[in-house]
Design a protein around this nucleic acid. Structure first.
Length: 441
DNA sequence: TCTGGGGTCCTAGGACCC
DNA sequence: TCTGGGGTCCTAGGACCC
C-alpha cells in the first residue's frame, strides 16, 4: 500500500544562512521576522541556549549577546530559491508531491519491491528510500532534512517529530514499520506507546485553543484523543477535528493537493511604525496595501470580487473586539487598482471610528476568477477592461524596472507616517554581527 | 401582512497551519 | 501570551427569496 511521507528541512531559515557562510557551522544562529519582531528560526545550538520560537527579539537580546549568537534578518528571496531546489530534488524521486510550505512537502511512496519468500513488500524499503532522498537533498543544497512516513498525513507528521527527536533514527522514521511487524495497521501496541508520549496539542490540526479545551476533559495525549467518541469530536471540533481523529486511527482523510500555488486569497497587512488616529492616514495605508495586493493578483492573472479591510485597535478597550472589519462584494470582478482602492476606501469609511488609535491596517482580496473570464453584470456600467489592463500592465512594467512604487496612486500619499519602522536596528554585537542581507521582495 | 417551510448568499468570527 | 505576516477552512446568524 501507499505510504505518505512528509519531508521538512531542519531549522530551514537558519540552515539556509549557514549554507553560504561556513563560519556559522556549529554556532548558534537565529533569524528574525520582519520589523525586527521576533525569533522565527533557530539553529540547534540556539535552541540549546533556551532561545524560544516566536520570542520577541528584545526579550532575548541579552542572551544573544552573551553567547555570541549570529543574528540575521530574514531574506525571503534566498529562502525561496533554496526551497525551489529542495522541492525539485524531492519531486525527481517521488510522485505526487504537494509543496505544503516553504520548507515542507508531502509525497507518496510506493515500494516497487516484493520479498518473494513472504510475498510481501519489503518493509525497510521506505526507510531506505527516504534516507536516499535526504542524502540527495543534502548533496544538492547543503540543507539537512527530516522525513516521517505513515499511512496518513497526520501520522506521517508524528513520525517526522520522532525522526527529529531521536538521533538513532538519523532523521528518518517510518511509523508503519514498528519492530518489523507488519505495515499500515494502526492498532500496533507500539504505535499506542508512541501516541501516549505525544501531547495532544502537538498533533497536526490541534492548536492551542483545542488543546486547552480537550484538557478540560482530561484528554492530554494523542492516545487519549484517539479514544474519543467520533460524534463528540465532530460536534466540538468541527469536521476538521473529526478528520484528525480518523487520521490518527489510520484512515486517510486529508489527501495530497496539487495546485496550491494558485492562491485563493491575498493578504497584505502591516503594523504601523507609530499608532495613528486620522482617517486620512488610514486611507493612505489601505491604498498602499491594496496596490501591493493588486500587483500580486495581476501576476497570477486573476481578478478579485471580494475585498475585506480591517483595522486593529492600539488599545484593548474592548476585550472581545481587537479590530474592525468590513467586506464588500464587487459587482464586476476586477484587478484594476483604482477600482479596488475605491471600494476599499468605502469599506474603511464605514467602519472608521473617530477618537480611537489604531496600530495596524490590512486588506484581504478573495473570490478570484481568471482575468480573461470576467462575468459582466448587465446592471453595471461596463468598464473598459481592455484599457484598464493595458494601463495596469504599463504601471507594473515601470515599477518592476524602476523599483517598487515609483509610479503610485495619489491617495497612497507620500508622507507615509504609518509605515513600519524600516531601520533594522543592527545591535552592534561587534565581532559577531553580520551584514544583514536585505533583498527586496 | 407574520403565517410555513426551505434554500442560498453574505458576513463576521473563530479555529488551524507555516 | 499572542510576537509578525500570510494563508485555508468551517460555522452561525441574518438577509433575502420563493
Amino acid at each position: 500500500m501507499k505510504r505518505i511521507a512528509i519531508a521538512d528541512c531542519n531549522n530551514f531559515f537558519a540552515s539556509c544562512e549557514r549554507v553560504f557562510n561556513p563560519k556559522l557551522i556549529k554556532k548558534p544562529v537565529v533569524v528574525l521576522s520582519s520589523n525586527d519582531g521576533c525569533i522565527i528560526a533557530r539553529s540547534n545550538e540556539a535552541k540549546a541556549l533556551g532561545i524560544k520560537m516566536g520570542e520577541p527579539f528584545f526579550k532575548c537580546a541579552d542572551l544573544i549577546k552573551k553567547h555570541n549568537v549570529f543574528v540575521f534578518s530574514s531574506n525571503f528571496s534566498l529562502y525561496g530559491d533554496m526551497s525551489a531546489r529542495v522541492m525539485q530534488t524531492i519531486s525527481e524521486l517521488a510522485t505526487d508531491i504537494e509543496i505544503y510550505s516553504i520548507d515542507e512537502a508531502f509525497f507518496y511512496m510506493q515500494s516497487p519491491v516484493i520479498d518473494f519468500k513472504t510475498n510481501q513488500e519489503k518493509l525497510d524499503w521506505y526507510t531506505n528510500h527516504a534516507k536516499y532522498i535526504k542524502k540527495q537533498v543534502y548533496q544538492k543544497t547543503g540543507l539537512p532534512m527530516s522525513i516521517g512516513i505513515g499511512p496518513t498525513k497526520t501520522l506521517a507528521k508524528i513520525a517526522n517529530k520522532i525522526a527529529k527527536k531521536f538521533p538513532e533514527f538519523e532523521n528518518v522514521f517510518d511509523i508503519t514499520n514498528l519492530s518489523g511487524v507488519a505495515s499500515a495497521k494502526t492498532d500496533h501496541p507500539k504505535l499506542d506507546d508512541i501516541l501516549k508520549n505525544i501531547e495532544v496539542g502537538d498533533v497536526w490540526g490541534i492548536g492551542y485553543r483545542y488543546a486547552e479545551f480537550l484538557k478540560r476533559y482530561n484528554i492530554k495525549t494523542a492516545y487519549d484523543f484517539k479514544q474519543c467518541d467520533e460524534a463528540w469530536v465532530r460536534k466540538n471540533l468541527t469536521i476538521n477535528g473529526l478528520k484528525t481523529l480518523l487520521e490518527l486511527k489510520g484512515t486517510s482523510c486529508i489527501k495530497l493537493e496539487d495546485n496550491l500555488d494558485e492562491k485563493k486569497s491575498i493578504t497584505v497587512s502591516r503594523l504601523f511604525g507609530k499608532n495613528i488616529t486620522e482617517l486620512n492616514d488610514l486611507k493612505e495605508a489601505v491604498s498602499y496595501h491594496i496596490t501591493r495586493a493588486a500587483e500580486k493578483l495581476r501576476r497570477q492573472n486573476m481578478s478579485t470580487s471580494v475585498i475585506t479591510i480591517f483595522i486593529a485597535f492600539a488599545n484593548y478597550y474592548d476585550p472581545h473586539k481587537q479590530y474592525l472589519s468590513s467586506t464588500v462584494t464587487l459587482p464586476i470582478a476586477s484587478s484594476y487598482t483604482p477600482t479596488l482602492i475605491q471600494y476599499a476606501i468605502q469599506c474603511l469609511e464605514k467602519i472608521y471610528k473617530k477618537g480611537v488609535t489604531y496600530k495596524k491596517a490590512g486588506i484581504i482580496l478573495s473570490d478570484f476568477c481568471s482575468a480573461s473570464s470576467i462575468q459582466l453584470n448587465p446592471f453595471e456600467k461596463i468598464p473598459n477592461i481592455e484599457k484598464q489592463s493595458q494601463a495596469m500592465a504599463t504601471v507594473d512594467k515601470i515599477n518592476s524596472k524602476m523599483g517598487k512604487n515609483k509610479l503610485f496612486f495619489a491617495i497612497s500619499g507620500t508622507k507615509h507616517i504609518w509605515q513600519p519602522k524600516l531601520e533594522k536596528k543592527s545591535p552592534c554585537y561587534t565581532t559577531n554581527w553580520h551584514d544583514i542581507l536585505t533583498v527586496k521582495i
